[in-house]
Design a protein around this nucleic acid. Sequence first.
DNA 1: TATGAATGAGGTTTCATTCAT
DNA 2: CATGAATGAAACCTCATTCAT
Lengths: 195, 195, 195, 195
Amino acid sequence: MDCSDKKECREKKAAIIQATVELVGEHGFHGAPMAMVAERAGVAAGTIYRYFENKDALITGTYKDLEERLQAKVLQGFPEQGTPREKFFHFARVLVKWWIASPVDFRFVEQFHNSPYGVAQRRDKLLGKQRNLCWDIFHEALEQQGVKDLPLPILFGLTFGPLILISRDHNHGFIALDDTMIEQTIEGCWNAVKR
Amino acid sequence: MDCSDKKECREKKAAIIQATVELVGEHGFHGAPMAMVAERAGVAAGTIYRYFENKDALITGTYKDLEERLQAKVLQGFPEQGTPREKFFHFARVLVKWWIASPVDFRFVEQFHNSPYGVAQRRDKLLGKQRNLCWDIFHEALEQQGVKDLPLPILFGLTFGPLILISRDHNHGFIALDDTMIEQTIEGCWNAVKR
Amino acid sequence: MDCSDKKECREKKAAIIQATVELVGEHGFHGAPMAMVAERAGVAAGTIYRYFENKDALITGTYKDLEERLQAKVLQGFPEQGTPREKFFHFARVLVKWWIASPVDFRFVEQFHNSPYGVAQRRDKLLGKQRNLCWDIFHEALEQQGVKDLPLPILFGLTFGPLILISRDHNHGFIALDDTMIEQTIEGCWNAVKR
Amino acid sequence: MDCSDKKECREKKAAIIQATVELVGEHGFHGAPMAMVAERAGVAAGTIYRYFENKDALITGTYKDLEERLQAKVLQGFPEQGTPREKFFHFARVLVKWWIASPVDFRFVEQFHNSPYGVAQRRDKLLGKQRNLCWDIFHEALEQQGVKDLPLPILFGLTFGPLILISRDHNHGFIALDDTMIEQTIEGCWNAVKR
DNA sequence: TATGAATGAGGTTTCATTCAT
DNA sequence: CATGAATGAAACCTCATTCAT
């Protein structure tokens, strides 16, 4: 944990995180015992505890890592000067495409949000304690009166709720999303909140 | 199991289901070991197995029970002769109000949908194998060209996705939904799909 | 138990014994829980306890019933006036044919002998406390000096040991015993002890 | 499991096997719960599962261990150049002496043969899939026409059946085998099959 | 007398975590 | 630092037995 400057350590931690994402994504929290995570990561069981205090920390840390990677992806080509609408469209596109390109990542995130761990995360985000892009976009939109004057959680719900469900259905094979459908859905989301 | 005609047995089964909903809703699947379910239901551990073959059957059976109770609630005052829009509004209202009135029920349903159990359920519903009110509403709307010509999963996603998220946020205390806000959100959902 | 004069009771007890033989014979002691025995016998679980004090008594009682039925079979056509050799041949023939005609009976008896229950039974038989045909045959043979002067258990071992094993192998399908082979084996057994 | 090169591990596995033999031998399969095996072996319950996948594997593995030890004993002083008769006598002597010297070993083997596990073992042995000394002896004898032309299972039955029974009776205290009696019995066995 | 639902002790197995090497 | 064998609490489930009906 405190050897994050050494390359070998960083690689080992990355392997552990990747193994966690895969196993939780594939089989749920039940199907990801520490020993199995260790095996898939190519390290010994005890080694995980040098990087994460316990299993809870492993799960939370893995989620944070995914979130950071998402942030990085969203920032690529982000229309800093665009309207909130354009910003939202960019954000939503990246999000959905990431989820359907990496089903295990998506599954992990879903599992996480639906577990006790997830609640605290969500609280920080909604209350703006942990500022992020998403929060900024809607604040700007509210100020410019581009969206209805609703509480942030409702705006989030109306926009991201659908994106989550359709990504899930795509990954389960219930629909086959293509660019057009994705675009239509994002449009629908925006229609739900635009003024 | 086969004593469903006796009042005592029905009460016992109901107690087991209630205990399951509460414990899973409060602490997740992890936090609902059979022994604890039994204790809260006021029965012996072995007794559960007279009503449910194993833990999986207990979870699935509990979900089905919740679903049936929802159906019953929705049917009360259902606008059989109304437009699809009116039907959807009725359905959505009942759904959200139930969820925020019974947070443990909502939490259980959420957990369920995010578990392997949930996928099969959802598949049946989306493919129309297990016809239900919800499916009927959108089919009628599609025929009357009242909603956009999108695949069912996307229509569901656009409409129920937000309802799920805002109910979650309400239960977590991030927002305090009142009738007006609920109505506005449902309106937003419909805007997302209406033609 | 104390209603052995009523026909219905006798039939019920017989059904319980038959169910016990079958289940133990088919799946071993592990595979014969009381509830299953009851179900196959067509009675309620609690009913068994009116006929047998507990599971041990059920097993022991079932064994005794089988033994009595064997005795009855052996006595049919028994060469009372014959030589010990003829008597042994008759006994052995009946035994082997019964075992290969009723594999479950045989399996039950085997299981029984190899369980703690069996030891006491065998003790009584060998020590002559519980006199029986078999014991009589060899005593007569010893007196007439038709067989070697060996302790009874050894004479039993040399004669019945093989019969047990070949019956087992037949029932497992390793060999297909016919009358000739049975006769040859019995002959071999007698050769092992004859003077 | 994969630490069989370390002395400590080998000792631990041996302790588990020994505990299994003793408990099954003394009290049957019923009387050997994993927790008790662990306690007697001086390890924690979970430790057994590092060496054996489950209880079945423990039982089967223990049997194989006993068989290997028997093989080793038989090979000491084995009359490679002797006649089949001499070889059989050697084999039988070692067998009986081992059984009456180690009653728990004998009891374990008996229990094993009478369980579902045992059938597969026996099948392999009789069909020659798993070649062994015993099988070789009788094949040689058949070729040299030293024994009657009977199916292998019958030859085995006629020779080992008695040995098993008398060992059992000795261990139960019904007879007290001495070298002479053992020799006489083995002689009897051979007489049963010799041409 | 017969029933069968209920009991709860006890069985097998898993797995997060520790610690000697 | 890394290892992975060992731990033992705790999970799920079975089943002999009882007892109200």
